[in-house]
Simulated scan of single mutants.
Amino acid sequence: MIVEVAEMQITSTMVHTPVGDLPLSGSRWQVTDHWLSQRVTPTWAKVAAFAGICFSGGLSLLLLLVKEPVAQGTVNVTVTSGQHQYVARITVKHEGDVTAINQQVNYVRSLAAL
Rank of each mutant, 00 (worst) to 15 (best):
82 G>W: 03
67 K>D: 03
15 V>N: 05
79 V>L: 06
33 D>H: 11
66 V>M: 11
38 Q>D: 13
53 I>S: 00
93 K>G: 12
105 V>T: 04
93 K>C: 04
11 T>F: 06
90 I>C: 06
76 N>W: 04
12 S>P: 14
36 L>W: 08
9 Q>N: 13
104 Q>I: 03
79 V>G: 04
1 M>Y: 13
29 W>I: 14
74 T>W: 06
77 V>Y: 01
46 K>Y: 09
80 T>K: 06
52 G>I: 03
49 A>Q: 01
94 H>F: 02
31 V>G: 00
47 V>Y: 05
99 T>W: 02
85 Q>N: 05
108 V>G: 04
12 S>K: 15
62 L>Q: 01
101 I>Q: 00
79 V>C: 07
83 Q>C: 04
3 V>T: 08
66 V>H: 12
46 K>S: 05
7 E>W: 03
103 Q>V: 07
79 V>R: 02
41 T>Q: 07
48 A>F: 04
46 K>L: 10
27 S>F: 05
64 L>V: 05
49 A>E: 01
28 R>W: 02
50 F>Y: 09
105 V>P: 01
26 G>K: 07
53 I>L: 12
105 V>A: 01
45 A>K: 06
84 H>P: 08
32 T>H: 09
75 V>L: 05
8 M>V: 14
31 V>H: 01
58 G>D: 09
85 Q>E: 14
89 R>D: 07
111 L>C: 10
93 K>H: 13
98 V>C: 06
74 T>Y: 11
35 W>F: 09
15 V>H: 04
24 L>V: 14
22 L>T: 14
2 I>A: 12
64 L>R: 03
82 G>P: 15
5 V>L: 12
40 V>F: 10
32 T>S: 10
63 L>H: 00
55 F>C: 08
73 G>A: 03
93 K>R: 15
37 S>L: 10
72 Q>N: 14
21 D>F: 11
41 T>I: 06
75 V>A: 03
74 T>G: 04
106 N>R: 07
16 H>C: 10
43 T>P: 12
